[in-house]
Amino acid sequence: MSEAIFTLDAEVRTDLGKGASRRLRHADKVPAILYGAGKEPVALTLEHNKVIQAQEFEAFYSHVLTLNIGGKKVEALLKDMQRHPYKPKVTHMDFLRVDAKSAVHTNVPLHFINEDKAAAIKTEGGHAEHHINDVEVSCLPKDLPEFIEVDLADVAMGQTVHLSELVVPKGVTLLELAKGEEHDLAVVTIKKAKGATADDADASAEGDEEATEE
């Protein structure tokens, strides 16, 4: 993926208030705010077209971004994005400054892999019920993963995968687990599809064999 997706040009804005923001949006600009790292917040303006292109990529929401503010590059995380209720327009963005030596807290998406290879799903009529689709992590910016994989290849019928069973990259902590054992949340469960039985699966397989023989 091109690093250009994670770099946005921005300008400092001094014309503040609802009226000013409305004028910016009419001019295809996105008002934004940059804060954190013990520094004063800075009001910014970004090009709407660039933002629309970048926000189509899932990694944009969990990647350390580079804001090019008047030639000065600042690393930041996207913390909030407000959208128009029905138009394909971004109306405001919040960015959090990133310090390379300080841990960041942010949400990372889960990618569920090998569902099509899980015997419980492929041959036993099960389906994967996702309980959560992202997790909050703490790590240094250099260790921030774009996503965390949940491998379902060997998950059995009726089995639930919990947070403690996820394989996370070195240096990454799941914040929910840090709260104690009672916070070992369910991530995904493979359940029998409604109305499906093992006999149904066997009968279906036998039917396929008979059809082949004919």
Rank of each mutant, 00 (worst) to 15 (best):
M1H: 09
E3L: 13
A4D: 10
F6V: 04
F6W: 09
A10R: 03
V12G: 03
V12P: 03
A20E: 06
S21H: 07
R23H: 09
L24M: 15
L24I: 00
H26F: 08
K29L: 07
I33T: 11
I33G: 05
G36C: 12
A43H: 15
L46W: 12
N49W: 09
N49R: 15
V51I: 13
V51N: 02
I52E: 08
I52N: 06
I52K: 15
Q53W: 03
A54Q: 06
Q55C: 05
E56L: 10
F57C: 04
E58W: 00
Y61P: 13
S62H: 03
V64L: 15
T66A: 10
N68K: 11
N68W: 03
N68R: 13
G70F: 08
G71I: 04
K72S: 15
V74L: 04
V74W: 00
L77K: 09
L77C: 14
L78H: 02
L78I: 11
Y86Q: 04
K89Q: 12
K89E: 13
D94L: 02
V98C: 14
S102W: 01
S102N: 09
A103L: 13
A103K: 15
A103H: 11
V104A: 08
H105G: 04
H105K: 13
V108Q: 03
P109M: 07
L110A: 01
H111S: 10
H111Q: 11
I113K: 04
I113W: 09
N114S: 11
E115F: 03
E115R: 07
A118E: 06
A119E: 11
A120Q: 05
K122S: 12
T123G: 00
G125R: 08
G125H: 04
H127V: 03
A128N: 01
A128P: 07
E129N: 10
H130M: 14
H131S: 05
V135K: 13
D143K: 14
P145F: 06
E146K: 11
I148Q: 01
E149R: 11
E149M: 06
V150M: 02
V150N: 02
A153Q: 07
D154H: 10
V155A: 05
A156E: 14
M157K: 01
V161W: 05
V161K: 05
H162T: 12
L163M: 04
S164G: 08
L166F: 02
V167I: 11
K170C: 05
L174E: 07
L175M: 15
E176T: 14
E176C: 08
E176I: 11
K179V: 11
E181K: 14
E182K: 15
H183R: 08
L185N: 13
A186F: 00
V188Y: 10
T189R: 07
T189E: 11
I190M: 06
I190R: 08
I190T: 10
I190H: 15
I190K: 09
I190G: 08
K192S: 05
K192L: 09
K192M: 07
K194I: 00
A198P: 00
A201I: 06
A203I: 12
A203E: 10
S204N: 07
E209F: 13
E209D: 12
E210Q: 14
E213W: 03
E214S: 07
